[in-house]
Design a protein around this nucleic acid. Sequence first.
DNA 1: ACTAATGATTGACT
DNA 2: AGTCAATCATTAGT
Length: 343
Amino acid sequence: MEDQARLMSGLVGLSGLSQGDMGDHDALRKQHNLGQPQQDIGDILQQIMAITDESLDEAQARKHALNCHRMKPALFSVLCEIKEKTVLSIRGLQDDDPPDQQIMRLDNMLLAEGVSGPEKGAASAAAAAVAAAAGGSPNEGSIEHSDYRAKLAQIRQIFHSELEKYEQACSEFTNHVMNLLREQSRTRPISPKEIERMVGIIHRKFSSIQMQLKQSTCEAVMILRSRFLDARRKRRNFNKQATEVLNEYFYSHLANPYPSEEAKEELAKKCAITVSQVSNWFGNKRIRYKKNIGKFQEEANLYAMKTAVDAASVSSQASQANSPGTPNSGGYPAPCYTPDGRL
DNA sequence: ACTAATGATTGACT
DNA sequence: AGTCAATCATTAGT
């Protein structure tokens, strides 16, 4: 019987239903002094339950009173904890972020293309790289160059203004939500941790939007780039002197017209072209020579004569000795391709 | 306008 | 990675 009474009082304490229905509340309280905390919680819960039935003014007043209640912080934290353990733990596990890598890739590309990052340096560096690939002297093609640069700058500007907009919207929205949640945390169990988490979610959403922006910017740059790279085909023939230098090397190394990396660099420097242009030239030359040796015979003889004369003048100056530097020294370099097409 | 020459690109190969 | 072979696209000579 006594157990039942305690149970009853406990229930009263927790559910807080009706002082009237359960008889003399004060008497009960006196009987169970030890049960006071439950009594308090019961009061609070009861008041919360009752709040919906009241008018707005009354409710406001009651809300205020509740907020000032000495048990409020404890109840709040308990409710937060319960919530944390149930809903948030499930949700929290779900959204881990794997698309981080992609955004890194996009960032890197934008940086490399000079869209993001420092203002002039990267952009001009990229443009210079393209110019180098385009070949020709640096002054040539500066028109297309500035065109490219202008378009890139345009993309850059759009990108940055959009990014700024997104960032502003993000921070505005975040602030709004934070204020709202803080406000609501007076009436709902919302812990600072939960607010923090919400902020995280918002940021993730916005960064996924940003990723779309980055992606489309990348696409725009790629299109611009490919268009510009097509313009690379607007080539210039190398100047006479450069062709001469290249031909000289080719015919004086006809037995093995494969310049080493160092030789290529030197030739590139002499001809004021890039190493890859030297490689292109030798690639073209070898194949075209091989295809039609007869056609190049005259040219071959001409350059062989030249190198022979040079060698002669060198050796006469050095009184004698054959120079080890010239593989084909002392003779007309005969075409050394075998019938099967190899050297 | 036509054509040969030529520098660059691309894909396959080693 | 370097090269070959085919091809493209432009330049230059006619």
